[in-house]
Design a protein around this nucleic acid. Structure first.
Lengths: 147, 147
DNA sequence: TATTGTTATACTCTATAACTATA
DNA sequence: TATAGTTATAGAGTATAACAATA
């Protein structure tokens, strides 16, 4: 086993936490895939739907999905074909198209959100443990907030 | 499924933690994608490589990747074409093929593991916070271990 | 000139089904 | 009959490059 010079177990902690983080992320990914499958959507389609809690341009969705803008054309096509979103022409800038959830899209999005939120991940945690985990995850989720 | 009628904010906690869990999972996914890209592998190829810390049958890899066995053929083809793995015929059961890392595969796997382990996720946490997070994540990662 | 969305292209992942060779 | 791996197929995601319309 390698012992680092200054902080021997701090690095080991980081490594172990990284491993656990990946395990939990994998688990979370499966929860999301199952939730998407339940509403008959692929994961990217489901992610787009979740991002559309407010109408947004295709460019914006591409940025939130962290993919090239050209991909959003196909994803939006399929969501539109399913009647879950509308494509509206922008009136100020006629290049942009605004994606908006239809009523059916709202319902699908609500189903998705419910399924996602009911992850059984923290079933074995006490109330106090949940609060602690929440605060720590918040720190991990926003690494810039280091006072 | 646990329905806690007497713990009103317990559900809210669960919801908030679920949201944070997804945010952290997304962040972790990007860290992994970047790590895979650095060794010029797709995420599934990188995952397969990580699973091959020990030689394993194609069936086993399919189960660990949670995908159909037919997909492993293509993934193994590409890893083999890159010279990262070997496909050995089984001598006891001649149907199974054992995948083994080549020296180049070992190096790629080590690079990948290093990149993955150096996730900046817990940069803002103190030593004590890391220990706490580790224990809580361990509980979340193995929901069956409820004493 | 720069930007938004689209199209064309190529590659990969994914599941299903049918096939082979073993067991 | 059942299992391990392959092949064929189809659908979807992804990036790159080129394009039209608009700014």
């Amino acid at each position: 086993m390698i012992t680092s010079s200054d902080e021997p177990d701090s690095l080991d902690d980081a490594h172990e936490i990284a491993g656990l983080l990946f395990a939990v992320a994998e688990q979370t990914r499966h929860v999301f895939e199952a939730a998407a499958r339940r509403v008959e959507l692929t994961p990217p389609q489901a992610r787009a739907l979740l991002e559309l809690h407010r109408p947004a341009s295709m460019r914006t969705i591409a940025q939130r999905l962290r993919c090239d803008a050209s991909n959003v054309t196909g994803i939006a096509d399929r969501l539109q074909a399913r009647g879950l979103i509308r494509r509206d022409e922008g009136q100020q800038d006629r290049r942009v198209k605004t994606l908006t959830l239809t009523p059916a899209g709202e319902r699908a999005r609500a189903d998705l959100e419910t399924a996602v939120r009911s992850s059984p991940a923290m079933a074995g945690l006490s109330h106090a443990e949940r609060a602690t985990l929440r605060d720590l995850l918040a720190k991990v989720a926003s690494p810039g907030a280091t006072p």
